[in-house]
Design a protein around this nucleic acid. Structure first.
Lengths: 187, 187
DNA sequence: CAGTCATGGCTAATGACATTAGCTTTTGAG
DNA sequence: CTCAAAAGCTAATGTCATTAGCCATGACTG
């Protein structure tokens, strides 16, 4: 080994702080290097390139989110679990809007892996509804879609009107819970 | 006036075609100019800068989407309207995944305006549920969140497992319809 | 029909980035 | 103490966006 100094993780830390403070648009190797007190090319000793940095960041974010949600769901089941899960998701996004926006901007390698942990948690939370394996998959996807959609829109301030978003989210939770209870029969 | 040639709209056309074919990441003034058979700086005669081009594109996409959805909803109401609306939304995304992904990458000026037309349509579709003004707003937001979330995830291929997405969407529609019918009482 | 002048295009230049190449310093292992 | 790998650095390249300033054209005016 040589000097202690930086490391891939440290670079990701710096990058995340940068994104938190200045938004995903400010993520540039130059900016990260500057914050890390190092010349830009030095970053390449720890990270293959900008794309990889983005992927590492996304994976980290997924992990954080999965952790929060895992905790939130612990010991709860069915409706209570869903409610806790959805609340935790939104709380995370509100606490780190920029960070959440930075997700998505990464291809699939590591991110997909990190995402699976998250999906596992969702799936577990849905077991309580006694869904068939396949049904549980569909339900998980719906959950993801609902939460991600709301998160993205709220994070980018896409909801203009004065109505309280807390109330909207209540309705959304209600929608999910209700929808999961009645396993669709006809149409 | 002088030469006929390009125009802001034409530039947007070219840019949209580019995005359709090569993805949002390929959107660069150089690429657009090349396709338009013109030198890069010439684009500035029609568009203030890349950011504005993005905004114009987003507005155009919003309009297209609103149009499709408007047609889909025509003459239907309540559950049928919701179903048609959601189907139209997804169909649009599937037909123009790259284009849809290119949304969001624009700030608020024109896009917000174009978005309002779309929201108007959603609101109208929800009138049939006899919701209070405010309730209708919340419901519209939920609709947006659900559809946008699913659209984004599907467009970026975030659903891995083999289960059919058509079925997932069925469940999602069911969830929305069911949730809208029972206006949440207790929890 | 000649003369203007705004429009749309062009080339050249600048500045931010990402990325690569190649050199230097530091330091842990032996 | 020696030395090789690790971690930094500077310099160089190529791609972009954006700006400045110049030229051609053609739609109107008179």
């Amino acid at each position: 080994m040589a000097r202690a100094a930086l490391s891939a993780d440290a670079v990701v830390d710096v990058a995340l702080r940068l994104v938190d403070e200045e938004g995903p648009g400010a993520l540039t190797l130059a900016a990260v290097a500057s914050r890390a007190g190092v010349a830009t090319p030095s970053l390449y000793k720890h990270v293959r390139n900008l794309a990889e940095l983005r992927a590492l960041m996304s994976a980290r974010i997924m992990d954080e989110l999965a952790e929060r949600i895992g905790e939130a769901v612990l010991g709860r089941s069915a409706d209570e679990a869903i409610r806790a899960l959805m609340t935790a998701w939104r709380d995370y996004v509100l606490a780190h809007a920029h960070r959440y926006s930075a997700l998505g901007q990464a291809p699939e390698p590591l991110v997909a892996e990190a995402g699976e942990r998250l999906i596992g948690i969702l799936l577990a939370a849905l077991r309580a509804y006694g869904l068939e394996d396949s049904e549980a998959i569909h339900a998980t996807r719906c959950l993801r879609a609902v939460m991600h959609g709301f998160a993205v829109l709220e994070a980018e301030n896409a909801f203009q009107l004065p109505e309280k978003l807390d109330e909207t989210y209540e309705l959304l939770v209600h929608m999910v819970v209700t929808g999961l209870r009645k396993p669709l029969g006809g149409a």
